[in-house]
Design a protein around this nucleic acid. Structure first.
Lengths: 191, 191, 191, 191
DNA sequence: TATGAATGAGACTTCATTCAT
DNA sequence: TATGAATGAAGTCTCATTCAT
């Protein structure tokens, strides 16, 4: 029989990689990085431990890849037209997207919040994270400045904190958190 | 040397217990529960592993005791006069106390936020936590209701989220977080 | 393209086999048998793991083949005219060949010396090795006997030890070992 | 019951440490570093794997300690009166001691020769080894110089190689190697 | 012939906990 | 009360080998 084509191999790799990452994301988010063993991930993904290491060289590389991939997805809804300036319309869109993402990617957000309290994990992605957070804070700050707010920096920090606080509570208490009401309240307040 | 009295033993026990708890709190908060070994705690506390187990039956009991003790301290500044109703003055006091506590007990707060993302730890203190959070949410809700706010439940949840969001950001970025400015902003907004 | 003939296949096989053996010899010699993975060998040889197993059934078979092949090459310079007796001229030639081989096949010699300290590898080639060493010791012994030396067996053992000692030191310290001076010294002593 | 005294603990540690090192030396020497698992050592020493790690932080530290300890023992018989100069008497003594050590510490010598063919192990002790070998080569060189030999450096290297070659052959073929005869031959040649 | 995905055994190491003293 | 030696389970990772294509 002729060997698999390069493309076939690539497809296998892509599928498997995604399977592993999805499984691992869910477990990392729900049980924490340290409590999630490679064994558990492999079993839940229906593969052997050995194979997992064929795709990711270490547990650290696995979580790094997952987090980076999640962060990449995020950048999409910050400053949609990439001009570095938020209009009132874009701020509204930004807030709506944030709430949307919160609901759709709960696993990622759990992991994201989790990060800040696991120094040895945070360390792995810190650089990338700092850049991203800084970018998004500057954007908010610029918005408030151009909107004539008195202390735009503090105002931006405040909004950042509010959003994360909401995310945090939603994560901690998903079932009964009134996400929609809070969203509307926030939009009324800010946009 | 005369043998120690009962009371002296009692005092030693109390001191030791506190020393162990303080040491463990700091390590748990900074390095995470899983990354902190009993060995490290014992060494930093200047005692042997064996003796630590003389004071706490397990690592779980240790963190449980620490968290419960922290939560006990918190209840102090909610509704100071214990009448179940917050005046505007008391809300202001509450907010100020919150910010104060944030600065003074950073270790505890790190651990507290951490809790929500470590199910196997959260499980240990969940019941107690739910009661406490519920109490404090109800109080805020009552305040907003008596203040004539339209949707007091949502308003309370919002304030809760805002406070935790602030705490969260302060923990994540202690050095450059403008805690004072945010405090004043919040007091102006709510009280 | 016309399909390859039987003979062409044969040639490919032979070339490949040699490529694999050379690559493996170098890695085994430099990094040790256990530290050299089949993966590394295949990669360095520019083929896949699967194909390597097409040529050698196991890692053990691979090293066995390499060592046997090396030993085959050695027999060439012992007793060139195969009459089982060494003349003074032939001993001189033998010593010179030894030094020559040392320089030219460092990889093999490293592996060869290594052998004696890795029982699980030695076991694989022991029989063959014993025969060979015995042959060459007998030859030296006969030489010394016919040269009228008092205790020819001990003398042969001594020369064998000296040669291996030189090889050993040269391997351990290739850069600064005065191979030439030592060679001349030895020839003066023995031939 | 009163706790163990510090001295009791020290005795336990010393005994255990020696037991572990002896067991490990034997296994490392006979089976090679890579083929000897921590599990095997622990089992043969009659303890748990965990306890072994209480005494040595890693497999590397274990072999390093063993080799260094062996090298320490060696320095005793080089230049007995530590004046940096060998007399003819001392050279004779040195050679005799070498043969003695060869017989008495076969495990160590196997490990020692083994070293040079396991780069990743050699690396761990290289520095110390180079110093030691250099010291002992210089001593021999000085001896030959003061004895009026023409090329004392080469002569020293030659003797070094001869000794190692003898050790090497003795290790490879302990049962039938005529150690005594070789020793006398060597003493007659050099001292 | 040729590929590399997949397996499974086994390696090193850590750590909560127990226990003799 | 106090010590730290000792255990054993579990975790991360490697690698010879097999197999579908």
């Amino acid at each position: 029989m002729s060997p698999r084509t390069e493309q076939q191999f690539e497809e296998i790799r892509e599928t498997r990689t995604k399977e592993i990452m999805d499984t691992a994301l869910e477990l990392f988010a729900n049980d924490g990085y340290d409590m999630t063993s490679i064994s558990k991930i492999a079993t839940k993904a229906g593969i052997s431990k050995g194979l997992l290491y064929n795709y990711f060289n270490s547990k650290e590389e696995l979580i790094k890849t997952i987090i980076f991939s999640g962060l990449d997805n995020l950048t999409g809804f910050i400053d949609p037209n990439k001009d570095g300036v938020l209009t009132k319309e874009e701020l509204r869109f930004f807030i709506e997207e944030f709430f949307d993402a919160l609901e759709k990617n709960q696993h990622f957000w759990r992991l994201y919040f989790n990060l800040f309290f696991q120094p040895h994990v945070l360390k792995l992605v810190e650089k990338r994270l700092i850049v991203m957070i800084h970018t998004y804070m500057k954007m908010l700050e610029n918005y408030f400045r151009s909107a004539g707010v008195e202390d735009p920096e503090t105002e931006a920090i405040m909004l950042g904190a509010v959003l994360d606080g909401i995310g945090f509570h939603f994560m901690a208490n998903t079932a009964s958190f009134p996400l929609d009401k809070i969203k509307h309240k926030l939009i009324k307040m800010y946009a």
